[in-house]
Design a binder for these strands. Structure first.
Length: 616
DNA sequence: GCGATCAGAT
DNA sequence: CACATCTGATCGC
């Protein structure tokens, strides 16, 4: 949760993600994404009154964020005061003091942040230097090198300060399975379950927030079905999301209204556990939650069984420690300000460890440091450390140089699918009534395993396992269209339940998720009081045609992943491979811009300091 | 009564 | 566990 106060040292007349207290006097506002902890004060009457009196104060955000914001009545008054900006389009903004007329120009560029729909970073360039406010973000290792606006020609821009989403800036969170790996594990679990019968359903017990949409769209696409939610209104201009969602109660959406629970007293689900015809549903609950693996952890599953029918599935909106290290060592800012205190740390501690990632003061060039570093750095920045040794054992000691080991790995994509499968989503998935299917026994070769974050016995190179740079940011911005859809697009009553899915077999025929039982933790009740956040509970219905033998069994993924430092790393069985996040998938996966990356990293390895934005 | 803030729950 | 949000208690205005 963000503790950022709203203002940056370099540009104190603007406020970001905080709208109360001293931020009430800002000349411009910026909202990085639509999570409540970044919207403090945003609906305040004091601010509203100020806006009504002002001619110049505006809120800048992405188009998607604006849409999500205005879809809530509490924030609808912002309609007249918001200025949506395109991604990757530098925009000049005049900051005007309305009493004195004093004016300052600032160029802002929005960079997709990969945190939730509409989430962006803000890159500011002005008289006080270049600063990057990350908002909340998740980049995979190597993503940063693809961001054109952080480069100037072949050089990385000279960044004075980064205001960082430091949620996981702690070696404890060294590695978090990639988005693709998590998605794949969830898909496999869901596929195995719902293919058994039309009354097998999967409940995605999501926290109430934006950010799960790409999970819904991928699941909807894969299983040719829709995810059942409470409200669609926030997505009315985002057909590529909308098409995979429904509120139709006949399809047993995960209703959140407490009064409905009276009708389903024994339900574990907000919407009850019976099909429309009264048949009891067979429900598994899947709770997306962050799983991380420490620096010495070898591997683990992305799915963990927590009860007879309860699972946790790995899912992270935030960059892991090694992803953050990659990000910071690439950019080498003069200053880094944490905006989140990692659990178990103090502000002083995280500030101190982040200093190790700052550029040496002597390397700072023409810009005068504003938020002065109080001590000179004892270390050179690590230019992309890629081994345990560099990241830990010598953390406080000697500098290390970038190695080739950081070449982004691109072979880890989920299947053959492009990361964003929604190009065709304007034609909704085929729909049909809940149909009888061939019931397939669930082949659960669940291998018990230890949750590896507690494992310390094996040396590993976890950061090498982490970075699938191929898990590109979900292109949430692509979801957005400026035209309002015709009503027919919003009327989803005809899309009732699940449908035959030829694609299911692609998943269900293959391997079994590797699960870990943490004992019985079945919930007997579930209350969902969250009236405002419509996506917190969702339900996936099964589809017809559970056929499952063929498909991706044998998983073309089987080609072993390149492991540069540990080529002899123990081979994984195929049955583990399908759900284990560190196993690559399709070799044929798209590998966009790999050549560029290779070139870049080779130049780095060759000591081409120009790529690091250094003067020397 | 409303808003801000904190603790606790989900 | 660890990604966000809600509810309820308490306090000040």
């Amino acid at each position: 949760m963000s503790i950022f106060g709203g203002r940056m040292k370099e540009y104190p007349t603007i406020s970001l993600d905080r709208f109360d207290r001293e931020n009430l006097h800002a000349r411009a506002y910026f909202l990085s994404h639509c999570h409540k902890d970044h919207m403090k004060g945003l609906k305040g009457p004091v601010l509203k009154r100020k806006l009504q009196l002002s001619r110049t104060v505006r809120l800048y955000c992405s188009y998607v964020t604006r849409e999500l914001l205005l879809s809530s009545p509490k924030y609808a008054f912002w309609e007249s005061y918001t200025v949506p900006l395109e991604l990757d389009s530098p925009t000049q903004i005049s900051l005007v003091d309305e009493t004195t007329g004093e004016k300052e120009d600032l160029v802002v560029t929005l960079l997709s942040a990969g945190h939730c729909p509409g989430s962006v970073m803000f890159l500011f360039e002005g008289s006080q230097g270049t600063v990057l406010y990350t908002g909340d973000f998740r980049f995979s290792t190597g993503d940063i090198s693809r961001m054109d606006h952080l480069h100037s020609g072949s050089r990385v821009k000279d960044i004075q300060s980064i205001y960082l989403d430091s949620t996981f800036y702690d070696p404890k969170f060294f590695r978090i399975p990639t988005r693709d790996a998590c998605l794949k594990g969830i898909m496999e679990l869901v596929g195995k379950w719902i293919s058994q019968s039309p009354h097998h359903v999967a409940w995605l017990n999501c926290k109430a927030a934006y950010g799960y949409e790409y999970l819904f769209t991928h699941l909807g696409e894969e299983f040719n079905t829709q995810i059942h939610v409470n409200s669609l209104k926030m997505f009315k201009k985002m057909p590529d999301i909308l098409n995979y969602l429904t509120t139709d109660r006949r399809t047993q959406h995960a209703c959140r209204h407490p009064k409905f629970e009276e009708f389903f007293p024994s339900s574990r689900l907000p919407c009850g556990c019976f099909a429309p015809d009264g048949t009891p549903l067979h429900i598994i609950s899947i709770k997306p939650s962050t799983m991380w693996f420490g620096e010495r952890t070898r591997k683990s599953s992305v799915i963990i069984k927590t009860g007879g029918s309860s699972f946790r599935a790995c899912f992270s909106f935030h960059a892991s420690y090694s992803e953050l290290k990659d990000f910071l060592s690439y950019l080498q800012p003069v200053n880094i300000y944490p905006s989140v205190i990692p659990v178990g740390q103090t502000l002083a501690e995280v500030t101190q460890t982040l200093k190790l990632m700052c550029r040496k003061q002597s390397e700072a060039y023409t810009y005068k440091p504003l938020g002065v570093l109080k001590r000179s750095m004892a270390t050179q920045p690590t230019c992309g450390s890629d081994s345990d040794d560099e990241l830990f054992d010598t953390l406080d000691l000697a500098p290390v140089r970038k190695k080739m080991g950081l070449i982004p790995e691109t072979e880890n994509e989920v299947g053959e699918k492009a990361p964003h499968p929604l190009e065709t989503a304007s034609s909704p998935p085929a729909k049909g009534p809940l149909a009888v299917t061939d019931s397939q026994p669930l082949k659960c070769n669940y291998a018990d395993c230890t949750e590896s974050k507690s494992s310390t016995s094996n040396e590993a190179k976890p950061n090498e396992l982490e970075g699938s740079s191929s898990s590109h940011l979900p292109k949430w911005e692509d979801f957005f269209v400026t035209e309002t859809l015709p009503d027919s697009q919003n009327s989803l009553t005809s899309r009732s339940c699940s449908v035959p899915s030829p694609s299911l077999s692609r998943l269900t025929g293959s391997q079994t998720p590797e699960l870990f039982s943490e004992g019985e933790e079945e919930r007997s009740t579930h209350s969902s009081q969250n009236q405002d956040s419509e996506l917190a509970d969702t339900l996936i219905l099964p589809h017809e045609n559970a056929g499952s033998e063929q498909g991706r069994s044998g998983n073309s993924a089987a080609s072993p992943k390149v492991n540069r430092d540990q080529p002899a790393r123990e081979a994984q069985s195929e049955s583990q491979a399908s759900s284990d996040f560190d196993i690559p998938s399709t070799p044929e996966s798209k590998k966009p811009r790999t050549d560029e990356l290779l070139l870049l990293y080779r130049r780095l390895a060759a000591g081409d300091g120009t790529l690091l934005g250094k003067t020397s």
